[in-house]
Nucleic acid binder design. Structure first.
Lengths: 138, 138
DNA sequence: GCCCGTAATTGGACTAAGTCCATTGTAGGA
DNA sequence: TCCTACAATGGACTTAGTCCAATTACGGGC
């Protein structure tokens, strides 16, 4: 992730304590955090960081393509730092746990021209839903 | 869609003017409306219908499997009345237009056991993103 | 190492989307 | 027709996110 900081500096990012902290949080544990969870963890490292800054920084990271926004949960957006390895998500319908998965096949190729309605299709997001072993056992 | 009303009655739904109106709105134009848009259209037909009732009714329709909740837009949930023909969505990244699409292939089959982590996977949701012809021209 | 312009941060008010709940109303079976 | 369990109401509340004017501070140039 120090790579990330390098890349960002290379793109003209002004490096601030706040931004560093947000990047560290995302790097930290590889879960899919909501913006608020990122903020909570960031505050633990840098108490005076504001919510607005966390939102700004996340937004910037997303538009730079360094972090992915995922909408698996229908409440809050989640941020996925694993943007450089393409992958999809498997979500537990009961507890909301999210796992990264790497299916075979290429869903983009599965969409025939006749179903593209003139769109320039550039991306596909796949969300599998089911019940995780822990919830199934309970 | 009178089919829908029949089905619902069959499942013990108490038929009220409000529920009928919500069902009619969903049937009306086959777009993917947000809850608020449903409410606005419902009010046009039945001015005294409340927001809470629209939310309740949509929630019930979803849990009965008659309507699908889609989270393509990252702001509001959208409601898709086309729940009985399995399909996926193609979303314009600029204007947010949503189209139903029917890709070939079965993404569920593309997820090998080794990538299921013990989950019982029951469903998959695919969202294609791109730019629609109108936005591309502009 | 210091200055300064520009970019970033702050926090609090604001908006949007959705939920909750106690009260009132009503569908539809007996 | 009456009764009751289910449904609707609306207003307060919560959660997620945005906006903005004022303040702060990074880092290039000297």
């Amino acid at each position: 992730m120090s790579d990330l900081l390098e890349r960002l500096r290379g793109r003209g990012w002004r490096m601030t304590a706040q931004r560093r902290v947000v990047a560290e949080v995302l790097d930290g544990d590889h879960v899919h955090l909501t913006a608020d969870e990122v903020h909570i963890r960031a505050v633990a490292k840098l108490p005076e960081i504001s919510r607005a800054t966390v939102y700004n920084t996340l937004g910037e990271l997303v538009s730079l393509g360094e972090v992915l926004e995922v909408a698996t949960d229908k409440r809050a957006k989640r941020y996925d730092p694993n943007a450089h390895r393409p992958h999809h998500h498997l979500v537990c319908a009961r507890c909301g746990t999210i796992r990264d998965v790497h299916p075979g096949g290429n869903p983009l190729a599965d969409l025939p021209d006749s179903e593209r309605f003139g769109f320039t299709v550039s991306d596909v997001e796949v969300t599998y839903r089911g019940v995780c072993p822990t919830c199934a056992a309970a």
